[in-house]
Computed example of a mutant assay.
Amino acid sequence: MPKDTGTTPVITFNYRHDVIAVPATIDGVRDWLSEHLREEFTTVTENTPPGDFDELFMDWVTEAAKDDPVVAEAIGRIKAGGLSGNVTYEETA
C-alpha cells in the first residue's frame, strides 16, 4: 500500500480564465462530477486498469465540462479537426 503523504494530488486545468482543481482520486473526481454522471463514472472506473487512471480522470473532467454549451461546441470543433475560432492562452492573457 502506498505511503500516505497527507496531501491529495490534484488535476488542474484552465477553464474560462479560472484555474480549476479537482482532487485526483476516484472519490474526488466522482464528487466533482454532476450527479447524473457519477454512476457511469463508478462503473467505468471499476473496470479501468490503474495505469490508465490519469487518462480516465482527464476524460471525465472534460466530460463534466461539456455541460457548458460553449465548451461542448469547442470540443466538437476540435474533435472534427477544426481549430479555427480557438485561441491560445497567450492571446487571452
Rank of each mutant, 00 (worst) to 15 (best):
D18P: 03
G6I: 01
T8W: 03
E35H: 13
D27Y: 12
V19A: 03
R30W: 04
A21G: 07
W32Y: 07
T12R: 09
N14L: 15
R30C: 09
P23Q: 01
G6L: 02
P9A: 02
R30N: 09
V19K: 03
A24L: 00
G28W: 06
P9K: 02
D27E: 12
F13T: 01
A21P: 01
V10K: 15
L33P: 11
T7V: 12
D18N: 11
E35W: 13
G6H: 02
F13W: 05
I26R: 14
S34C: 05
V10I: 07
G28N: 03
V22N: 01
R16I: 13
E35Q: 13
S34L: 08
T5C: 14
I26N: 10
T25D: 06
R30F: 04
I11G: 00
V10Y: 07
D18V: 09
P9N: 03
H17K: 12
V22P: 01
D31H: 06
V19G: 01
V10S: 07
I20G: 05
T12K: 12
V22C: 03
T25P: 03
D27V: 06
D27W: 08
R16Q: 14
T5P: 08
T7Y: 13
T5Y: 12
E35C: 03
V29G: 07
D31N: 08
V19F: 00
T8C: 08
D31I: 04
S34E: 05
E35I: 11
S34P: 10
D18H: 15
L33G: 09
T12G: 06
N14Y: 14
L33T: 13
T7A: 15
I20P: 03
T8I: 07
R30Y: 04
D27M: 11
F13C: 03
T5K: 06
D27T: 10
W32P: 15
D31A: 15
A21I: 04
T5F: 08
N14P: 02
R16N: 15
V10D: 08
P23V: 00
I20R: 10
I26K: 14
P23D: 02
V19R: 03
I11L: 04
I20L: 05
D31C: 12
A21Q: 12
F13H: 03
R16W: 12
D27A: 14
A24Q: 00
D18W: 09
D27Q: 14
W32I: 11
G28D: 02
H36G: 05
T5W: 07
P9I: 01
I20V: 14
H36L: 09
A21C: 06
P23E: 01
L33A: 14
V29C: 04
T8N: 05
V19E: 04
G28H: 15
